[in-house]
Design a protein around this nucleic acid. Structure first.
Lengths: 252, 252
DNA sequence: ATCAAAACAAACAAAAATAAACAAAAAAAT
DNA sequence: ATTTTTTTGTTTATTTTTGTTTGTTTTGAT
């Protein structure tokens, strides 16, 4: 069994039963208790369960039910999956950039509390990360955009110019293989374009609802992307196209 | 049963019945009374119930409506009064600056939804104002300061340099007639000094707990202030001093 | 006020769980 | 093919939990 499969199995079991002992997981997964303990440590850091002496407890039922605003979010489960996958790309010490998308917000909530520098224009991301002490959070500032609870405009772009980051994680309204990533709002698009220009590696978080869509404003050509994380399974033809552009695609 | 499960069970039982005896919990959970006592100590420390001789009582229904963080705020009523008074100084079309103090946050919540431009380094102020559509909100951005949920540092100061405002409303740790306004945190102090430099009119929001106090870092000399709003009644001598410096004082 | 029962706190010891260190095996990177 | 990294199991401390014992404090009835 793959290690990731075991992780999934453990989380599943914990959520199913509410709580479970290390010893039980050990026999169920056919690995020693030590291994299970190490797994639980990681899963706890990843925010997928809670450790307790002797075993682990589920986060479900305990965490406040998803707030009103969140229930309306499209493809929430897929976005969460994409966010989890994206978090796995992050190493301690990384300087990363998160945009004001829902998926980036999910990423923030799944980020382990490790030394990191996070630059963002999202209030929600900043607020979420305020609870993680080891993470250095920097906000771009700028004009408040109510709809996305983020900062845009000249000041936001100007602030971004001061920095350089290892990885940028962002989402958009639409993603089209030939036409690239696009956004419905001009101000948001401008901020994202600036973000791309200061990032070493550009990672698009793209749930299936965005595939094949072209929105109002151009944000990035496909070749500007380095990685696409998605729950959509592209056709063989499309995969070849991405390969030719040297873009890694991760399907969750 | 896992320890965490027992904790949950205890809290649940306490909340269900309002109160419960150690002996009863002991038989229900199948552990000795000593263990229950230790559990109750921890749960009380975690703020999940209240200890009492012989057992524990629920916190439910006892909780005040103001959230936990707000309960700890010193002189909350006075600060609210000061905030209301300060809001009365604001005219439609004003460009104002709010710092990251509790009083400024209260001001934000009392601001009417009129055409205004508000510049701030506080996340709470920005979030509060996101509900008022006619107000243009601009955040400075910068490094996140967890304690005050605000932005500080070079970027915050740099952003401020781009603007000029009619009125700045701020608070501080201490205010001393001879020594001026002071702050305990150097980074916050630097931001506030910068704020003062870009404001036409400087208004200090000063509840009585701050009067006569001198904190670590200097923020502003008394003569830099234009208005002081306070719930403290200064002595005639002090009033004369303020008058000589041409500083208006409003006592709420 | 006095006293006995109940409740508690502190100290200790045994058991369970965990953490740390190390080496072997497996997987990934070069 | 090799080196490096990651994962895993094993062994050995260390910590946490729990029950027990002993002495102290609180409570409520006399």
């Amino acid at each position: 069994m793959l290690i990731a499969d075991r992780y999934e199995r453990i989380v599943e079991l914990v959520n199913e039963r509410g709580s479970i002992r290390v010893s039980e997981l050990s026999t169920l997964c056919q690995v020693t208790e030590e291994t299970i303990r190490r797994d639980l440590d990681r899963l706890e850091k990843a925010g997928r369960l809670l450790r307790s002496h002797g075993g682990a407890v589920s986060l479900r039922d305990r965490q406040p039910e998803t707030p009103y605003a969140e229930r309306e979010i499209m493809n929430a489960a897929e976005k969460q999956q994409i966010a989890r996958e994206a978090v796995m790309m992050i190493k301690p010490g990384d300087r990363i950039l998160l945009d004001a998308s829902t998926t980036a917000w999910y990423m923030a909530s799944h980020l382990p509390d490790i030394p990191l520098t996070v630059l963002t224009n999202s209030i929600r991301v900043a607020a979420e990360l305020s609870g993680k002490e080891r993470i250095d959070v920097i906000s771009t500032g700028g004009q408040l955009s109510r709809r996305s609870m983020s900062f845009v405009g000249h000041l936001a772009e100007r602030s971004l110019e001061l920095y350089h980051v290892d990885k940028m994680f962002f989402s958009c309204k639409g993603f089209h293989l030939e036409r690239g990533a696009s956004e419905s709002n001009e101000l948001q698009a401008m901020v994202k374009r600036k973000m791309i220009s200061i990032a070493e590696q550009v990672i698009l978080l793209c749930d299936s609802s965005k595939f094949g869509i072209q929105a109002f404003t151009h944000v990035a050509t496909t070749s500007e992307l380095d990685v696409v994380i998605t729950d959509y399974s592209p056709a063989t033809e499309q995969l070849k196209q991405l390969q030719e552009l040297n873009i890694a695609i991760t399907t969750v």
